[in-house]
Simulated scan of single mutants.
Amino acid sequence: MNAALSAAVERMASDAIGGRFGLSSIEPVAGGDINTALRARGAAADAFVKLRPGADLAMFEAEARDLAALAACEAFRVPRVLGCEAVGDDAVLVLEWLDLRPLRGDAEGERAGHALAALHRLPTETHFGWPYPNFIGTTPQPNNRHDNWPRFFTLERLAPQLARAAANGYHGALQRDGERLCERAAALFLDYQPAPSLLHGDLWSGNIGMLEDGTPALFDPAAYIGDREADLAMTELFGGFPMSFYVAYRQSWPLHEGYEVRKGLYNLYHVLNHLNLFGRGYLAQAERMASRLATELAR
């Protein structure tokens, strides 16, 4: 056990709980695709520790603030932040440990669907964006504020990812169709003016879970104020959500006509991000999505 890390975890957790944490061990756990994931075992409770080399603290600081924002929704459990600081050459984020499992069955899917609608209905500001930039995976995510949603999504989401793709050597059809999308995306919103909603921002099935008492939980956010359809769209991108989830959400807050087309626009952002993070294996999918949307907007 790294002595400096152990001492920092003990101190941060103890300060947060207002008493001695009583650290006994720190051990690796699953979930460390981007960061090292650890379980810190304490005398009365455990903590989840994220470790990132290079003291890149900005990513964890943004995550801590995003988690605090999502915690305003009482329908979800969100892990409490116990500490966030640099320890030697590493950035460390310490969170409350939650015993989570994937959503199972219709009842749990229904509960999660209603909870997501409750999150999206929280009172929020009237503009789109976020008070600070954050991250989607390891990619910086700009969040400059806009009153116009299509403009926000074009300038703060699509355009930066397309620029990264070009810098990574992905040119041709992807950039041609991407440029057309940026020019014409507003046409998808002529009859739809989304209400600003608090979004999780990275809502695939790996970032939502269920506690044993039946409470749904959210974690690993890339939060911002946006169109609620963007969260719904991502749940469909990689699957893993029961149909009851979608039925319950629509019962709580029906979706507007045109969602089936707009969800392709929203999911293109995430596919472009995967292309930029993980490489050429996502290129064909990104090109197909951009081409389909460009064709739809040319009609």
Rank of each mutant, 00 (worst) to 15 (best):
residue 60 F to L: 02
residue 161 Q to V: 05
residue 138 T to F: 04
residue 184 R to Y: 08
residue 38 L to E: 02
residue 58 A to F: 03
residue 22 G to I: 15
residue 222 A to Y: 04
residue 174 L to A: 10
residue 246 Y to Q: 06
residue 79 P to M: 12
residue 22 G to F: 14
residue 276 N to R: 05
residue 285 Q to K: 09
residue 267 N to Y: 05
residue 152 F to Y: 03
residue 134 N to E: 03
residue 175 Q to A: 14
residue 175 Q to P: 13
residue 200 H to V: 11
residue 104 R to C: 09
residue 131 P to M: 00
residue 113 G to M: 10
residue 286 A to V: 11
residue 209 G to H: 14
residue 270 H to V: 11
residue 13 A to M: 02
residue 188 L to T: 10
residue 27 E to S: 06
residue 95 L to P: 01
residue 226 G to Y: 07
residue 75 A to I: 12
residue 168 N to T: 07
residue 232 L to V: 06
residue 268 L to K: 09
residue 175 Q to H: 13
residue 179 E to T: 13
residue 118 A to E: 12
residue 156 E to K: 01
residue 299 R to L: 04
residue 102 P to H: 11
residue 145 R to V: 11
residue 249 Y to I: 04
residue 154 T to R: 14
residue 90 D to N: 02
residue 256 H to Q: 15
residue 137 G to F: 04
residue 132 Y to S: 12
residue 284 A to S: 11
residue 1 M to A: 14
residue 129 G to L: 10
residue 169 G to I: 12
residue 117 A to D: 04
residue 178 G to A: 11
residue 53 P to A: 08
residue 179 E to L: 09
residue 230 A to N: 01
residue 7 A to Y: 07
residue 241 F to D: 12
residue 299 R to W: 04
residue 120 H to Q: 08
residue 139 T to R: 01
residue 39 R to L: 10
residue 285 Q to R: 11
residue 193 Q to C: 07
residue 133 P to E: 14
residue 10 E to N: 08
residue 123 P to Q: 12
residue 173 A to V: 15
residue 79 P to D: 07
residue 167 A to R: 12
residue 194 P to E: 01
residue 36 T to A: 03
residue 295 T to E: 15
residue 53 P to Y: 02
residue 201 G to L: 09
residue 299 R to C: 08
residue 238 F to V: 07
residue 165 A to R: 11
residue 177 D to H: 15
residue 294 A to Y: 08
residue 180 R to L: 15
residue 100 L to A: 04
residue 97 W to V: 06
residue 259 Y to T: 06
residue 66 D to N: 14
residue 21 F to S: 08
residue 224 Y to E: 10
residue 108 E to L: 03
residue 274 H to R: 13
residue 11 R to T: 15
residue 203 L to P: 03
residue 221 P to A: 09
residue 178 G to H: 10
residue 95 L to T: 00
residue 222 A to Q: 03
residue 283 L to S: 06
residue 147 D to P: 07
residue 296 E to D: 05
residue 33 D to G: 00
residue 236 E to D: 03
residue 32 G to D: 07
residue 138 T to N: 04
residue 236 E to S: 05
residue 165 A to S: 14
residue 214 G to M: 13
residue 170 Y to L: 07
residue 51 L to G: 00
residue 91 A to M: 04
residue 123 P to G: 07
residue 94 V to F: 00
residue 119 L to K: 06
residue 3 A to Y: 00
residue 25 S to C: 13
residue 7 A to F: 01
residue 192 Y to L: 13
residue 196 P to E: 05
residue 131 P to N: 05
residue 263 K to W: 08
residue 157 R to L: 10
residue 246 Y to F: 13
residue 238 F to I: 09
residue 45 A to C: 13
residue 97 W to L: 06
residue 72 A to C: 08
residue 63 E to R: 03
residue 126 T to W: 08
residue 20 R to M: 11
residue 113 G to I: 14
residue 128 F to N: 04
residue 267 N to K: 06
residue 156 E to T: 00
residue 51 L to M: 02
residue 137 G to M: 01
residue 198 L to E: 07
residue 30 A to V: 12
residue 123 P to W: 10
residue 237 L to E: 04
residue 191 D to F: 13
residue 288 R to D: 09
residue 43 A to E: 15
residue 147 D to Q: 15
residue 191 D to A: 14
residue 45 A to R: 15
residue 216 P to C: 14
residue 54 G to E: 05
residue 217 A to N: 15
residue 118 A to Q: 11
residue 241 F to M: 09
residue 92 V to W: 01
residue 190 L to E: 15
